[in-house]
Computed example of a mutant assay.
Amino acid sequence: MSASLETTPPPPARRRVTRPALDAEGVRVVLRTLLFRGASVPAWHDDAACASRPRALFFPDTDGARPRAATVRAAKDVCRRCPVRAVCLEDVMTYESPAHRHGVVGGLSAAERHHRHGLHAAPLGASS
């Protein structure tokens, strides 16, 4: 009596799904969607001085460290000349999560926006 061994075929190899890398415009679309929680992107974005600049200037990859002072100054210089700086800052202070501040927006660094948010969140008449 010979024993026949039945073997099951190996499972098919898993195909690795690769996603295409986002170009600069794709990154902007994703960020706008996340920042504005699905609401329409304000029209002033088209007039922003940063629209034609590299994203990394305003949101440098610092691996958790503080960004270099020269990088922050360069981003702020662009913001300083921006015709929509005030409304940009107003929007970021409305939509940005205080726990996730990063980069230079509206002419202020993440630390400056954090400080400003604390000032605006304090009850009127509270002493510092």
Rank of each mutant, 00 (worst) to 15 (best):
V78Y: 07
G26S: 12
E25D: 15
P54W: 12
W44P: 08
V41K: 08
H100M: 08
D47C: 11
R116C: 00
D63R: 15
H120R: 00
F36P: 03
P98T: 02
R28K: 15
R101W: 01
H120G: 04
G107W: 01
D23Y: 06
T62G: 05
A121E: 08
L124V: 09
V78A: 10
S97L: 01
R14T: 12
T94E: 04
S127D: 11
A111T: 03
L35A: 14
A24W: 12
S127V: 10
G107R: 00
A111D: 09
A126D: 10
R113W: 00
L34D: 10
D91A: 13
C88F: 02
P67C: 03
L57V: 04
V105G: 03
T18E: 12
P11S: 08
T94H: 00
R19S: 14
V84Q: 01
S40R: 11
A49L: 11
M93C: 02
P67V: 06
A39S: 13
A39I: 06
H100N: 12
L34Q: 15
Y95T: 02
P54N: 11
G103S: 02
R15A: 13
R16C: 05
V92I: 07
V87A: 02
T18W: 13
R37C: 09
R53D: 14
P83Q: 07
P9K: 15
V78L: 11
V78K: 01
V92S: 08
C79T: 07
Y95I: 01
D63C: 10
C79Y: 01
A70V: 09
R28P: 03
S40V: 05
L35M: 15
P67N: 06
H100D: 10
L34W: 11
S52R: 14
Y95S: 00
